[in-house]
Computed example of a mutant assay.
Amino acid sequence: MRRLFFFLPALGLALLSGLVHAAVGFAEIPGTAGDGPVTVFYPSSGEARPMRRGPFTLDVAAEGMPVRGNGRLIVISHGSGGAPWVHADLARSFVDAGFIVAMPEHKADNYKDTSNPGPGSWAMRPAEVSRAIDAVARDARLAPLLELDKVGMYGMSAGGHTALSLAGGRWSPAAFARHCEANLEGDFQSCVGLITRLTGSWFDGPRKWGALFVIRRRFADDTPQAHDDPRIAAVVAGVPASADFDMASLAAPRVPLGLITAHEDRWLIPRYHSDRVLAACLPRCELIADLPTGGHGALLSPLPPGLTGLIGDMLNDPPGFDRAALMPEVNRKTTAFFSTHLLR
């Protein structure tokens, strides 16, 4: 028996050593039910090489042979108009810890197609996450390496809305409209996106009138929206869109819920969004990281280069935000949260 106790730590170290030296594999697998592709990052025995995707260079083993990690999957839900590449650093942190990572392409609200952002997309996204799990479960290379009874789910911005839905939150399009009617000027970008902005000129009156006209006509449905996937066992919401949630539904999340907040977020103003979630769910949720100088784009890593205009104002790092010093630790804490709740 004594020899066994010496042997087990040695075996664990040997397995960990093999995983540490694994490359980050990369593949795109078909979605289901007409969904777009699911991008997958995973531990691989292949050789990592630079790969270009848009303005990003990823050091990955493209189509490399998967190797066994810790047996768990994490799904990442991108933000509005988002792409997999802006979460590559977090995905690498997950893979280094042994996780396989799947990123669905949310219909009509991704970098290829931005025709239906906001509540229209929010209503579809949770089911798209479930179907991404199904897609991984059908993949002949990945499925044998996984147990899908305990899946993690991470979402940022609009993906954070998805995360809160999968943690048990309920919302409705009409609740979004009511929020915008009451707080249009204070939370303007949340209500209208990046179509326009308030400038302090006389044009602001017509802008606000036009925004409310469209919002009232499009978002009148008061039916509560909810989606439950029993496979999802831990959730992290980063700078989530959340003003339209019934906060009572988040007072006792159905699974462990972690939050990441950024005080300088000018797209989803914290007092209307993440602060309200924390006030509702603490102490039954966990504040994983709080970024006093972080903006809305803090969790995009790598951050898209050369952003200008309104999107640059919303996503570029505010003065004083030390991305290089702060974000590796945020990724480490996020990875540790999932390790704690999925590997026990």
Rank of each mutant, 00 (worst) to 15 (best):
L11M: 12
L16W: 12
S17K: 04
L19I: 03
H21V: 07
A22K: 03
P30A: 03
T32G: 10
T39I: 05
F41L: 09
R52C: 08
R53Y: 14
F56V: 06
D59M: 12
V60G: 02
A61Q: 00
A62F: 08
E63H: 10
P66N: 06
V75F: 12
S80T: 15
H87W: 11
A88W: 01
V101H: 10
M103Q: 13
P104I: 05
E105N: 13
H106T: 06
T114R: 15
S115T: 15
N116K: 13
N116R: 15
R125H: 05
V136L: 02
R138Q: 15
D149N: 11
K150S: 14
V151E: 12
M156K: 09
A163M: 05
L164P: 04
L166W: 08
P173K: 09
A175R: 15
E181A: 11
G186M: 00
D187E: 05
F188L: 06
V192R: 12
L198P: 08
D204K: 07
G205I: 15
P224E: 06
Q225Y: 06
P230F: 00
A237F: 04
G238T: 11
G238Q: 10
P240G: 02
P240R: 00
A243G: 01
D244V: 03
D246P: 04
A252P: 01
P253M: 00
R254H: 00
P256D: 00
L257I: 02
G258M: 03
R266T: 14
P270G: 07
D275I: 02
D275N: 09
R276T: 02
V277C: 03
L278W: 07
L282K: 06
C285R: 01
E286F: 01
P305L: 07
G309L: 12
G312F: 10
M314R: 13
N316T: 11
N316H: 09
D317Y: 07
R323E: 11
A325G: 10
M327T: 05
P328E: 07
L343T: 14
